[in-house]
Amino acid sequence: MTSFTLVLLPIDGEVLDAGAGRVVAAAQAFGQPVHALVQGPAAVAAQAARLQGVARVLHAETAPPNAETLARRIAALAERYDTVVAAHGMLARAALPRVAALTGRAYLSDVTAIPSRRSVVRPIYAGSAMATVQVEGALCLTVRASAFEPLADRAAPVDIEALAPVEPDGRSRLLGRETAGQDRPDLTRARVVVAGGRGVGAAEHMRLVEALADRLGGAVGASRAAVDAGFAPNSVQVGQTGKVVAPELYIAAGISGAIQHVAGIKDAKVIVAINKDPDAPIFAHADIGLVGDLFEVLPALAQALPARGA
Results as ranks from 00 to 15, higher is better:
P299M: 07
V38W: 04
D267S: 10
A48P: 09
G19H: 04
P10N: 11
R189I: 00
S235R: 05
V193Y: 03
V209L: 01
T241I: 07
A43I: 08
A152K: 07
L6I: 09
A48H: 11
A27D: 02
D293C: 11
A263F: 07
R171P: 08
Q303H: 14
Q39I: 14
R207Q: 15
T103N: 06
G104E: 05
H88A: 15
P233D: 09
P150C: 06
R117V: 02
G181A: 14
T2D: 12
G196K: 08
A302N: 04
V272W: 00
S109M: 11
L70I: 04
I282L: 11
A229P: 12
A49Y: 06
V297E: 04
A302I: 06
A202M: 09
A222P: 09
R98A: 13
R93D: 06
G309R: 07
G199E: 10
Q260S: 04
L294Q: 05
D169I: 13
R144G: 05
L77N: 09
Q47R: 01
P306N: 05
V38A: 05
A145N: 00
R105S: 09
V15A: 15
E167P: 12
Y81R: 10
D279W: 00
A225V: 08
E14G: 08
V244E: 09
A155D: 14
D277F: 12
A76P: 00
E178G: 00
V158M: 04
D110Y: 11
E296K: 15
I124W: 13
A46V: 02
H35R: 11
G292K: 10
Q240C: 13
P278W: 02
N66I: 01
T2Y: 11
Q134F: 10
G239I: 03
A229C: 11
L9W: 03
A232T: 06
V236C: 06
S146N: 08
R93W: 10
G239D: 10
I251K: 00
A310W: 05
M130F: 14
L290T: 07
A147H: 14
R80K: 08
A95Y: 02
A302V: 12
A42D: 14
G199V: 12
P185A: 13
A219H: 02
A20M: 09
P123L: 13
I271A: 08
S146R: 08
I251G: 08
R50G: 04
T62P: 02
G53M: 11
L70E: 07
R50S: 07
Q52I: 00
